[in-house]
Design a protein around this nucleic acid. Structure first.
Lengths: 213, 213
DNA sequence: GTAATTTATGTCAGTCGATGACAGATGACA
DNA sequence: TGTCATCTGTCATCGACTGACATAAATTAC
């Protein structure tokens, strides 16, 4: 890796760290791009060459987590049912987060605390999740052997994403609390859904009775 | 109703109409507040006395629809199960939308076309829905006789909201297409969920087998 | 090692969304 | 009619964000 690339990485990390610290101490809205840039000793213009917006820098770590989740998902064995693959990917990602070095773990925790306590960032995080939903559906459709616009795969992802969003409702600072909340919701989902609900439909096997009326 | 109040209502409507037309013809980002204000012959400052932001005016009709949905929900008979009350409220709201006078219906359709074709507005609409989710949960918890932070009521709302968001995935311009998509998803949900899944839990009645692993 | 090329950064100017403060206009009401 | 509350326009300002251009630094070619 060349010098140029290393330098860029250092600047990027410094910008994220400075932004997180300033956001947490002075507040997200009260912090200006100029202050962040000054802290890292770059011009404000340079900030926007690394991040598309003020929100972007705050959510960069959240976006990283989502990429990790996606990576886990595509590597799940095909033997797992669609919903199981999703929930196992989440467990795997939480496991990875637990085993980070202290520096990185600290940054992740800072970012999580910031996002959870800042309404516009919470909304932004949910927007990120929604944007990734399209990719999740594509992967699920591939697994289930259906078209990406098939309602079934979309529904499976929707239920899972709904659970993920519910995890973010209560501001749970620490990772284990988050994992516990997640498991509670999975248990609830198990009790609510029919066995095999997420398996590709075998034609002619309609449910016995209406569940919602 | 006094003259003053009527004038305000007219200005507000004019701002919405001008904004929708400009957004649709020139594009959302390309349209400035100044252009909207000039069209209605008010000062740009006055625009912000009626709407908190540029996004706000574009989503005002969407917000109105959500209020209608909420109003329907609180008036559903307690005999309906939680999820049934939610889906019937949606049907009722779609019914109301179908019976509007042409002027109002045209505006609604304009707003829907605009939101569906403008990514940041689509994100904003989903943010609105998420913000209202809190109120939905409160109402569901009231129905189910549980605390508002009970996971069960949150899960029921989450499944329903997930379906609502899926309805917005494909840009369905006309109302009947939207209704059809909605019914398809409801049918899918019926097939996927256990009968009585949304009823308040009667203790000691755990599900027979795991549904997701 | 130097020259040529690519790429990152700083500076400058500018647009646009959004807000506070103040003054004037206009409807409400006694 | 006159007082009062409220709505509106004007002005000034901030901060996020962008395009254009020049400079400096790293990479590559010779």
């Amino acid at each position: 890796m060349g010098l140029r690339e290393r330098k860029k990485q250092r600047t990027r990390d410094a910008l994220i760290d400075a932004a997180l610290d300033l956001f947490l101490s002075r507040g997200y809205e009260a912090t200006t791009i100029d202050q962040i840039a000054a802290e890292v000793e770059v011009s404000p213009r340079t900030f926007f060459r690394y991040f598309a917006s003020k929100e972007d820098v705050a959510l960069s770590l959240t976006a990283d987590e989502q990429e990790m989740f996606l990576a886990e998902l595509v590597s799940r064995p095909p033997s797992e049912s669609p919903f199981t693959a999703l929930s196992q990917s989440m467990r795997a990602m939480l496991g990875i987060l637990r085993e980070l070095d202290d520096a990185e773990a600290g940054r992740i925790r800072k970012a999580q605390r910031l996002v959870h306590t800042t309404p516009p960032l919470l909304a932004g995080a949910m927007r990120l999740i929604r944007e990734n939903e399209r990719r999740l559906v594509a992967e699920m459709a591939r697994r289930m052997g259906t078209a990406p616009d098939d309602l079934h795969s979309q529904f499976v992802v929707s239920v899972f994403v709904g659970i993920g969003l519910l995890c973010m409702n209560e501001p749970t600072e620490d990772l284990s609390g988050l994992a516990r909340r997640y498991e509670s919701l999975l248990t609830l989902a198990e009790r609510s859904l029919r066995p095999g609900w997420d398996l590709p439909v075998r034609s002619g096997a309609a449910g016995p009775a209406s569940a919602v009326s």
